[in-house]
Design a binder for these strands. Sequence first.
RNA 1: GUGGCCGUAGCUCAGCCUGGUAGAGCACCUGGUUGUGGUCCAGGAUGUCGCGGGUUCAAGUCCCGUCGGUCACC
Length: 369
Amino acid sequence: MSAVTWSSIATDGAARTGWLETPHGVVRTPTFMPVGTRAAVKAVDSADLASVGAEIVLANVYHLMLKPGAELVARIGGLHEFMSWGGPLLTDSGGYQIFSLDPEIDEEGATFKSVYDGSRVHLSPEEAVGVQARLGPDIAMVLDVCVGLPAPVEEVEAEMRRTLRWAERCLQAHQQDDQGLFGIVQGGVDSDLRAESARETAALGFAGFGIGGLSVGEPADQRNSALEAAVRELPADKPRYVMGLGDTDGLLDAIMRGADMFDCVLPTRLARHGKALSSNGDFNLNNLRFEADDSPVDSSCSCHTCSTYSKAYLRHLIRMKELSAHRLLSIHNLHYTFQLIAGAGTAIEEGRFADYVKEVRITRAEGSA
RNA sequence: GUGGCCGUAGCUCAGCCUGGUAGAGCACCUGGUUGUGGUCCAGGAUGUCGCGGGUUCAAGUCCCGUCGGUCACC
């Protein structure tokens, strides 16, 4: 019996809703995981996360192994204790940093430059598993190689194969029976490579599957077909996690194709830059037209920010670079994202997911027109 | 009163010596950001060059006057 399991509640076409069971609690899927790279979701705290509807939070191996270090977190009692988050946690392995920080990669592992002092840091598949054993999240990810798109198909194929070899090594090294390990599907936007990667990764037998290497510059239709190709080869009774995806259209597209879990910096990063997500279409609160707008960011939103503050006030906070602007807009953007996802779950259960998607898109388009 | 310095974009200023399509930074107005470096990038709008006169083909720039600010000295 794996530490992490998933069971279906209902399906509607390819879309599905279910329960993800972890050592630290049960999560309703589809779900969104706010990104707390350094054991902190920027600008908000664990009480804020609970208030916006977060059930599972993400943190990052590469960043935490540098500061404060996995040993220190372990000594304090693990990541849950350290960050005072009692619910489920997932840690990303550092695979994305292989993509974004341009390290040297060989078959053994990757060598990065520390973002803190420039020193060389080594990370192998086994080390990534070891760090995650000490951090103690409910779900650990294998170390994968994510390729930026567009890229030559030879490169995409080579790194997909390397990811498979590394996945086997991660599985070998993984000893934690109180922690689920997820494999990661790669293969760019090539359907054959995606299918092969999914099939081979599934055959290794993980508790769940990340679908990585998407939302890295490819058009939406290519992303969607790559996702379909991967999902076709993945077991129906295991969770599917589309890594790094978090815009409204992308989430709906992916849920429609059978994805269960997501994470993305977008809601919180946009918040720090003054951009608001809204059921009536997203907008930039910096815009002059909100200078004297005394209405809330989203009149149909029940979050702390929308029930307390006006657009005019939030715009003022943003322009004055008040720190509270980051928190208040992050709370709203996260709440918006959870509302969207929860609405999708309910719609799937009631067998009206297609109508839900249509409704969300029409309301957003009309509002921004 | 005398002498020096200053007056150019909303702000701080460069350009003046050596005349040749008025500039920078910030601010302002937009857009971008997807397994996070609270950034960064891209685009845009903005002028009575204090005012008046003179020289010149041509003056923000040179000359004369004048107004305002500022400092020093009487």
